[in-house]
Design a protein around this nucleic acid. Structure first.
Length: 414
RNA sequence: CGGGGUGUCGUAUACCGGUAGUACGCUUGUUUUGGGAACAAGUAGACGGAGUUCAAUUCUCCGCACCCCGACCA
């Protein structure tokens, strides 16, 4: 798209009401707008980025058999009372409100209850299992204190997948596949090398859950990493008994600050029993379905990437995540002849199906380069005076700063 | 929720119990044009309420909002 048509503008100064690097950069570059503490609007560049993350996640979930649906944000109070998760004394971060017609509802904090009830209509026999269902949805959590920019909000996007299996063996096999799918997501999102499978509290569901913790100074958790094995333990469960159980040695562990990028849980029959999700087994007996839940927050993931891959000039997006692949920067100024050359190149790139943001604004080179660095598109293509003479353009990698020159044909056939 | 802090043009900041200044942005013009240009002329501002005072953006109180530390984070 033409940058002259993009309604967002960049700013030089950090916002005074943000401390976290991810929020400062994303706001300055025009990716997000802060509506209130813990609630951010995704502007065109930010939404393109978020959609790319969603696409990666969707592909990985589909690859392990996930079926996408979209549940409601409004929650049925009576359903949550059955699992004892409605009471504010039990779950303290609900946004609750009343219907004009009477009765109470809440905005979904997570979706185990509704998905389990839905499945009672569709699962009756062992022949119906397993089932894997997921959605992307805004979750609402009435946090006392939102913080860390877009990484911990009151409203945020989450991909939540739920697995329904006939027994723990079938469940465990899927759990392992889900773990690999998650690692694929983080690798494609550019943070694979600093994201660790981390053993953490399983809460009330099981002994351990597995977190995907990304090393970051902005993190909220302390993890202890065994670099050789590539796994870690969250400080919250770190003790001798746990280490023995996981076969880890204290001496091999390195402490790191990290942010939770995803989490997968064994739910057992915590929800299927109270909500009556059972199936008839081959021997005719009725059995509760064994469940798991698997969460990734794409908005938080975007924050983690902004936080960990950026440099002092601005954002640095991995190719699969970036809002555009190429940033075509025209230095034509008032040179109509050169502007025509850039226009034509832009049209040709579009025709080739290349993803390109075309900086056709009339502005000086310094401002354009600074903006390009801030926005962080992977490849910058510069059309300058040399282009008019030789037809060649300059290609600069945002991540490495590596510069090369290409002919039009070389660029268009990249 | 406990503790600490901050609210000033669109953005970032300064000063002050007595006419609110600067930079960026934006508008117009001239010159410039490969790393956030120069000059000139414009544009635009004290979170809300109450109190103290001759006078409040400034002091006090209440409210609201935002930030940070802690707690919390199935």
């Amino acid at each position: 798209m033409r940058q002259s048509q993009l309604f967002t503008r960049t700013r030089k100064d950090n916002p005074s009401d943000e401390e976290s690097k991810n929020a400062q950069l994303l706001i300055r570059a025009g990716f997000v707008y802060k509506e209130m503490a813990g609630a951010y609007t995704y502007l065109p560049l930010g939404l393109r980025t978020l959609n790319n993350l969603n696409r990666i996640i969707r592909e990985e979930m589909n690859a392990i058999g996930g079926q996408e649906l979209a549940m409601t944000a409004l929650q049925d109070k009576s359903l949550w009372e059955k699992t004892d998760r409605w009471d504010d004394a039990k779950v303290d971060n609900w946004f609750k409100t009343e219907f004009k017609s009477g009765g109470e509802t809440g905005l979904g904090i997570t979706h185990e209850e509704p998905i389990t009830r839905i499945m009672t209509e569709h699962i009756a026999s062992y022949r119906d299992l397993p089932v894997y269902a997921y959605q992307f949805q805004n979750k609402f959590r009435n946090e006392l204190r939102a913080k860390s920019g877009i990484m911990r909000g009151k409203e945020f996007l989450m991909k939540d997948l739920y697995s329904f299996s006939k027994d723990t063996e079938e469940h465990d096999a899927f759990f392992a596949k889900a773990r690999e799918a998650y690692l694929n997501v983080f690798r494609r999102a550019g943070i694979g090398d600093r994201t660790y499978v981390t053993f953490a509290s399983g809460g009330i569901f099981s002994e351990f859950s597995e977190e995907f913790q990304t090393e970051s100074e902005a993190g909220e958790d302390l993890i202890y990493v065994d670099e050789a094995k590539g796994i870690a333990v969250n400080k919250e469960v770190l003790d001798d008994a746990t280490l023995a159980k996981l076969g880890l040695s204290k001496d091999a562990l390195v402490e790191k600050k990290a942010i939770e990028a995803g989490n997968i849980f064994n739910l057992g029959t915590r929800f299927s029993e109270p909500l009556g999700l059972t199936y008839t087994a081959e021997d005719g007996s009725k059995q509760p379905v064994v469940m798991g839940s698997y969460g990734i927050g794409p908005t938080r993931l975007m924050g983690i990437i902004a936080e960990t891959l950026s440099d002092d000039k601005g954002l640095v997006w991995p190719e699969e995540v970036a809002p555009f692949t190429y940033h075509l920067v025209s230095l034509a100024g008032n040179d109509d002849e050169l502007a025509a050359v850039a226009d034509e190149l832009y049209a040709d790139m579009e025709k080739k199906g290349m993803s390109v943001l075309y900086d056709d604004r009339i502005a000086r080179a310094g401002e354009k380069f600074a903006d390009a660095d801030l926005i962080g598109i992977p490849y910058r293509i510069v059309v300058g005076k040399e282009t008019k003479a030789s037809g060649r353009v300059e290609l600069v990698s945002r991540a490495t700063g590596e510069v090369s020159t290409l002919s039009r044909e070389e660029l268009l056939n990249r």
